[in-house]
């Protein structure tokens, strides 16, 4: 299907699996399916320069696709509601144990036209994830990881989320 070397897929699989287990997540027990998705992620890295979700159509503009960079902003909500993320790379304990199977689920991501409306409504200051002032009564501003909800009270968001490994630009101002 692609020119991605099988060793690269294998190395990425082992790293993702180890990271997931370390932080309370699970990859799907269907290893062949997981490796196909990882191959898709690596193809998207070559195509777009980032890990766009293999099961969603990326726009190619990183700022517009940030919410679907794996792990996506919708993973945890989908794990809670459906037991799997949209592409079923990540699954619940129940599915991991083999007590349930992942099913196709609706896409939680707003549609293209909904995203355009949302984008127009976001105040400019929220886009600038740095140098914010602390709210009154607090020593630091608080940043929230949009992927896993991790909160960090510090001048700037951390370069990488210590929980889910999402990068700095995935943080939003929380307080």
């Amino acid at each position: 299907m692609s020119d991605i070397p099988p060793e690269k897929i294998e190395t990425t699989f082992k790293k993702l699996d180890a990271d997931a287990e370390k932080f309370g997540y699970h990859l799907s027990p269907d290893t062949d399916f997981v490796k196909e998705l990882i191959e898709g992620l690596l193809i998207n890295e070559e195509t777009y320069g980032y890990w766009a979700c293999p099961c969603r159509l990326a726009d190619g503009d990183k700022a517009d696709d940030l919410d679907i960079v794996c792990p996506c902003d919708y993973r945890d909500a989908d794990l809670n509601e459906f037991g799997a993320c949209y592409c079923a790379l990540y699954v619940s304990d129940e599915i991991k144990r083999g007590d349930a199977q992942p099913e196709p689920i609706p896409d939680r991501r707003p549609s293209y036209s909904e995203r355009k409306i949302e984008k127009a409504q976001i105040p400019v200051q929220e886009d600038e994830a740095s140098g914010a002032e602390a709210p009154s009564g607090l020593a630091y501003p608080v940043w929230r990881c949009k992927v896993c909800g991790y909160l960090a009270a510090r001048d700037d968001p951390p370069p990488v989320c210590p929980i889910c490994k999402a990068t700095k630009e995935r943080f939003e101002r929380f307080m």
Partner: peptide
């Protein structure tokens, strides 16, 4: 379909 998508496959 998408060439990278497991469900499409």
């Amino acid at each position: 379909a998408l060439s990278t998508c497991g469900w499409c496959k």
